[in-house]
Write a protein that binds this DNA or RNA. Structure first.
Lengths: 143, 143
DNA sequence: CTGTTAATGAAAACATTTTTCATTAAGGGG
DNA sequence: CCCCTTAATGAAAAATGTTTTCATTAACAG
């Protein structure tokens, strides 16, 4: 039994084919997937998979912090598996490929400064970087 | 003629009542507004205002960097006026009030580190902090 | 003031997300 | 290993958010 299956069992959730299909799609994805994309890929594993179930499964996975929701430039919500530790997302604006990176002390310093200046208590943050991956930089260096 | 009106004139765009209504709503807002909210407020100035025009006007304002688009927790897109300089948004998760703050060197340090580690060229970023403003901290200290 | 044309707004198309409810199947107890 | 309970599912429809279409309006140059 894999780690995510154990986590489901631990909170009295069942391990079902639809959930396997959604997790499978996310495991093989190399960039954040929209719910519709997860449906398309998941159906290769579980033909009867429905879009509603994809939404519900993502909601569950979010609650268990198995997946992270990222802001895609096309407006849709994108979903990626969470890596261990606190990570942020770096998206290539050409091919959509995403890599995660850990948040360093730099951000904590900045957050503390902002807390001091504003009086707010900051307890969460969303950091996403956009740019071009190595391959896309070479492909269209000045096009 | 105000600064934004000059900017519109400079790019051969007309200064219209709908655009005045949208800008008016944004000027008086104290937190990011969704298009529908802008419509409601804008109609107090220009009764005939339509939602489509709100979208088109926001698109124009975005292109001119008069407004910034922020990711709201309810899933909608929120729009706020851009402050001079490079700013980020800090949202109160209770009352929705937003303040902007300038991005410091800390973030540049982090970005350079990530560029080095991944090979990506980073040219844009989205940083939003979530927390509680001073007032909401006092109101519900442990509720 | 008038003509040109950018801009507008209503309706409809489209996309995304949520709700409803009858049916299915996961997995514990016998 | 089978049966039963009920969580989970999926189709349809509703709700919500965004974009397109196109006839009409109004900004502003002349």
């Amino acid at each position: 039994m894999t780690a995510w299956e154990q986590q489901l069992t631990a909170c009295d959730c069942r391990i079902t084919m639809p959930r396997r299909a959604v997790m499978g799609a996310l495991l093989e994805a190399e960039s954040p997937l929209a719910p519709q994309e997860i449906l398309d890929r998941g159906r290769q594993v579980h033909t009867r998979l429905g879009l509603v179930t994809v939404y519900r499964t993502l909601e569950l996975f979010l609650r268990l912090t198995l997946v992270r929701r990222v802001h895609r430039e096309d407006g849709c919500q994108g979903y990626v598996l969470t890596s261990p530790g606190h990570h942020h997302v770096l998206l290539c604006r050409d091919c959509g490929r995403a890599v995660e990176f850990p948040g360093g002390d730099d951000l904590q310093v900045l957050i503390q400064r902002v807390e001091g200046e504003t009086g707010y208590r900051v307890d969460e943050h969303l950091l996403q970087l956009f740019g071009r991956c190595t391959a896309c930089q070479q492909g269209e260096s000045d096009a």
